[in-house]
Amino acid sequence: MFTGSQWEGSHAPVWPFTLDYVPSVDYCQHGPCPKKQYPGMWEIPVQRWYGLDGHSCAMPDGCSATGDAEETLEYLKSNFRRYYNSNRAPFGIFVHARWFSTEHTLDGLDRFLDYLLTLDDVYIVTPSQVVEWMKKPTPLSGINGFEPWSCQGGANDVWLEAKK
């Protein structure tokens, strides 16, 4: 589901949610949208991004092109700050493969990941790990023991079991 304000700063980012209830247009802005409940089904919404020129887009590769790795880094950081400095909803980076066809975007993303690694309260996780944390919120003081985020927990068990 695609969501988010058309204008930067109008609304806080949307947290993932279940379809226990039919979502309002605030959560599903472009159809087809669910018209009935799907209890227990989780939705991680695709949220608008905002280019350095202020225009919104559906995905990072849809905003105006950046000229170099430094602009790409600033673009990623400015969108991340919307989440980090407001309600701290998970910040998903969902891109089409074409975004990597320009070398400076990959370089900018690499620098952005290096930046995130400097933050003690930010974790790089998969969408399924986000849902597992939402099912069992764990404070930072106990996050090192959170099984779904460990190398032995979560989806890795399924893969290891299937490999045997």
Score class of each variant (00 low, 15 high):
residue 131 V to F: 01
residue 76 L to I: 00
residue 124 I to Y: 11
residue 11 H to N: 10
residue 135 K to G: 13
residue 102 T to A: 12
residue 35 K to S: 12
residue 67 G to I: 00
residue 94 F to T: 06
residue 161 E to D: 12
residue 62 G to V: 00
residue 102 T to Q: 12
residue 122 V to G: 10
residue 11 H to R: 08
residue 11 H to G: 03
residue 118 T to K: 14
residue 25 V to K: 04
residue 124 I to C: 13
residue 92 G to I: 00
residue 157 D to M: 08
residue 41 M to P: 00
residue 147 E to I: 03
residue 108 G to N: 07
residue 137 P to A: 06
residue 64 S to R: 13
residue 107 D to G: 02
residue 115 Y to E: 12
residue 21 Y to I: 00
residue 53 D to K: 11
residue 73 L to N: 06
residue 103 E to A: 15
residue 92 G to E: 00
residue 115 Y to P: 11
residue 69 A to M: 04
residue 20 D to K: 09
residue 73 L to I: 03
residue 99 W to F: 15
residue 107 D to W: 03
residue 65 A to E: 14
residue 154 G to V: 02
residue 111 R to W: 08
residue 24 S to W: 01
residue 110 D to K: 12
residue 86 S to V: 01
residue 67 G to Q: 04
residue 113 L to V: 15
residue 38 Y to G: 01
residue 14 V to L: 08
residue 119 L to V: 05
residue 101 S to Y: 02
residue 51 G to L: 12
residue 20 D to L: 07
residue 12 A to V: 05
residue 139 P to C: 04
residue 52 L to S: 11
residue 102 T to Y: 04
residue 84 Y to C: 06
residue 27 Y to A: 08
residue 154 G to E: 04
residue 13 P to V: 04
residue 35 K to Y: 04
residue 151 C to Y: 01
residue 83 Y to G: 08
residue 47 Q to H: 04
residue 82 R to K: 14
residue 55 H to W: 12
residue 21 Y to L: 09
residue 25 V to P: 01
residue 114 D to S: 13
residue 15 W to G: 13
residue 31 G to A: 11
residue 132 E to G: 04
residue 49 W to H: 07
residue 64 S to W: 11
residue 27 Y to L: 15
residue 96 H to V: 00
residue 17 F to P: 10
residue 8 E to F: 06
residue 18 T to C: 04
residue 27 Y to H: 10
residue 99 W to C: 11
residue 54 G to W: 15
residue 74 E to R: 12
residue 38 Y to R: 12
residue 104 H to D: 11
residue 49 W to N: 05
residue 154 G to P: 06
residue 123 Y to Q: 13
residue 53 D to W: 14
residue 1 M to C: 09
residue 81 R to D: 07
residue 21 Y to N: 14
residue 43 E to V: 15
residue 3 T to N: 06
residue 31 G to H: 02
residue 102 T to L: 09
residue 135 K to D: 11
residue 89 A to E: 02
residue 14 V to K: 02
residue 102 T to C: 05
residue 50 Y to L: 11
residue 121 D to L: 06
residue 78 S to I: 00
residue 123 Y to V: 02
residue 7 W to P: 01
residue 93 I to M: 14
residue 155 A to R: 05
residue 110 D to H: 13
residue 75 Y to C: 11
residue 95 V to P: 01
residue 9 G to M: 08
residue 44 I to G: 09
residue 36 K to G: 02
residue 119 L to K: 14
residue 58 A to C: 06
residue 29 Q to N: 07
residue 2 F to K: 14
residue 127 P to T: 13
residue 69 A to T: 09
residue 67 G to Y: 00
residue 126 T to E: 04
residue 148 P to K: 03
residue 28 C to K: 05
residue 32 P to V: 03
residue 126 T to G: 03
residue 23 P to Y: 02
residue 126 T to I: 02
residue 64 S to A: 14
residue 139 P to I: 07
residue 138 T to M: 01
residue 112 F to Q: 08
residue 28 C to S: 09
residue 132 E to P: 02
residue 32 P to I: 01
residue 134 M to I: 09
